[in-house]
Nucleic acid binder design. Structure first.
Length: 565
RNA sequence: CGGGGCGUGGCGCAGUUUGGCUAGCGCGCCUGCCUUGGGAGCAGGAGGCCGGAGGUUCAAAUCCUCUCGCCCCGACCA
């Protein structure tokens, strides 16, 4: 390929729409352009990178026993009704109606359609296990698309579905995918960390997310300093607290005018936030409940929702809070409440704690569990944070931000039961297929790679995903000797099967260097008068910004050995 | 959906508060000359119904109303 021919317009200035480095470089280097909010077109260089990533994925999944298929983007509503997700999925699903008023959606995910596919043809245990995957566009009408391709409304995803006869088979498939994912991301040059994860709208029992750690990440994870426990905070379990020692003292009202926040209360009473009971009023399926957590912790609504087994959970409005507690917002407490109370472990062990008094401008001290209030349930409902004790080993949690590039789920029989995907076992007995599903955000992976591999001049692609391996830059393409040498080398590298691009533009060298740095080709060969007269060229290594002089006759061999490393 | 900000040539912006000449600047683009080891120089040129619609006015990029789009924070989310 020649730079004069390729459609890769680079931008000198940073487009105002991009905030994240990866987003800026993807636009500036001419990898993609925005078509609408959260919708992008990929240009030739971007496509080359995507294809590299997809091919790595294919190789590893095929090796693990996967077979590639291609499922439709447009999916009929009936299947989603069967699984119950037509209503469950909500606003995030793009829906459309055809001319006959039949309803469809643009697939946000493909469990329904693949399960329907398999149920039609899989009859016997002899056809299992089965692993099918596709690399396909997905559509989710995100409330707020952001960070370029990292949170977009149309994105490329690899999704694989495993079908097994039993849990044991599922465990094997799950492990095979877990291992394949580790290899895939490592081959892409990504440093990822698998963490335990919540299963969200997909459902299922067990799940890991593969996180790319970095400040730009949208997710918060905690991991233990002493053992290998790591989890998304959505999921991370918290260890129960030990009950405090001490004798119960009598309740005592404290006037606290306008003290409606934990911070103000800590300041006023000069006690630690952990001694306070934070009382949050929620509407669970429209019925009020109280959730208690200590003042230095936050409620994890996902956990709370699971404990309550409700479909919807929202913070109560001021009116409800007043009606339920008899006090304005900021003075709620468990004492005297007539609604269900869920207490976190962080409050269940407190002795002589401080809580709201359910009375304006008043708090109450020496609150004790089972004497002053009786919780409906004591459970783990708080959000894990750095400094907390690890549930597994008692070590200490550290937190980090991360971007999820892949997730593996054990679905079990959720979809096979709903969609009646059954098989006959050896005894001729009908059984639901045991499923797993495994996703990789392909377009997002490209952005994540840039996040981990860039500097102030541009992208530094890992060789495995670079759009081209080598760029040849003659200092002056017009100079006959340089051009001849560059063209000769170009042919030789091409013949050797090395992916090479020749900058044949009549530009000044600085322009060509800047573009090469921005796009991030791993190797640049500069052909200039200085070295050429000695039969040499200069090899520039993008990632380390180092230069070596190599005889023209040895360049092909030299590059080959670098690529094979 | 709540809060904030922005739409002026391909990109980045000024001009809008206080309406008034022909709508400007930098970069990019085209032609020619010149130049060639880190985004050169000179000369000439193309390209904009100022996001859209309606209104106020002698006069609107500028004021008013409506509308569309984009970005950021939040809630939500694989």
């Amino acid at each position: 390929m020649r730079v004069s021919q390729i459609y890769a317009p680079t931008l000198r200035e940073v487009p105002a729409e991009a905030e994240l480095v990866s987003h800026q470089y993807m636009l500036r280097a001419g990898l993609m352009r925005r078509a609408a909010s959260g919708v992008y077109s990929y240009l030739p260089l971007g496509v080359r990178v995507l294809q590299k990533i997809m091919n790595i994925i294919r190789e590893e999944l095929n090796r693990a026993g996967g077979q590639e298929i291609l499922l439709p983007i447009i999916q009929p509503a009936e299947l989603w009704h069967e699984s119950g997700r037509w209503n469950e999925y909500g606003e995030e699903m793009f829906r459309l109606t055809d001319r006959h008023q039949r309803e469809f959606c643009l697939g946000p995910t493909h469990e329904e359609i693949v399960t329907a596919l398999v149920r039609a043809d899989v009859r016997s245990y002899k056809q299992l296990p089965l692993m099918l995957y596709q690399i396909q566009n997905k559509y989710r009408d995100e409330i707020r698309p952001r960070f370029g391709v990292i949170r977009s409304r149309e994105f490329i995803m690899k999704d694989l579905y495993s079908f097994d006869r039993d849990e044991e088979g599922l465990d094997k498939s799950y492990q095979a995918m877990y291992d394949a994912y580790s290899r895939i991301f490592s081959r892409c040059g990504l440093d990822t960390r698998p963490v335990e994860a919540d299963t969200g709208a997909i459902g299922g029992d067990n799940s890991h997310e593969f996180m790319v750690l970095g400040d730009a990440g949208e997710d918060l994870i905690v991991y233990c300093q002493d053992c290998d426990y790591a989890a998304n905070v959505e999921r991370a379990e918290c260890a129960p607290f030990e009950a405090e020692e001490g004798s119960w003292q009598s309740l005592e009202e404290i006037p606290t005018p306008n003290v409606t926040t934990i911070e103000k209360l800590v300041e006023l009473l000069e006690i630690d936030a952990s001694r306070l009971i934070k009382t949050m009023i929620y509407l669970a399926d429209d019925k009020p409940i109280a959730a208690l957590v200590s003042g230095n912790n936050n409620i994890n609504e996902i956990k709370l929702k699971k404990v309550l087994q409700c479909d919807t959970l929202v913070l109560a409005d001021a009116g409800t809070i007043e009606a339920v507690t008899g006090a304005p917002v900021g003075f709620a407490g468990p004492v005297g409440l007539e609604i269900p109370i869920i207490a976190d472990y962080s409050v269940s062990g407190l002795v002589n704690a401080v809580a709201g008094a359910n009375k304006a401008d008043t708090h109450i001290a020496n609150v004790n569990i089972n004497r002053d209030y009786i919780p409906t349930k004591i459970a783990d409902i708080r959000e894990a944070k750095a400094g907390d004790k690890c549930v597994r080993c008692g070590g200490t949690f550290t937190s980090a931000r991360g971007t999820e590039v892949g997730q593996v789920f054990k679905l079990g029989t959720k979809y096979s039961k709903a969609l009646k995907a059954n098989f006959l076992d050896e005894n001729g007995k009908e059984q639901p297929i045991v499923m797993g599903c495994y996703g990789i955000g392909v377009s997002r992976t490209m952005a994540a790679i840039i996040e981990q591999h860039h500097d102030e001049d541009g992208i530094c692609w890992p060789i495995s995903v670079a759009p081209f391996h080598v760029i040849i830059v003659p200092v002056s393409y017009k100079d006959e000797e340089q051009r001849a040498a560059a063209e000769k080398l170009y042919e030789e590298l091409n013949a050797a099967g090395i992916e090479v691009i020749l900058d044949d533009r009549n530009e000044r060298p600085g322009v060509k260097f800047k573009d090469a740095d921005l796009i991030g080709y791993p190797y640049r060969i500069t052909i200039g008068p200085k070295q050429l007269q000695d039969g040499n060229a200069e090899l520039f290594i993008r990632s380390s910004k180092t230069k070596v002089v190599v005889p023209l006759s040895e360049i092909v061999q030299h590059i080959k050995s670098l690529l094979n490393r």
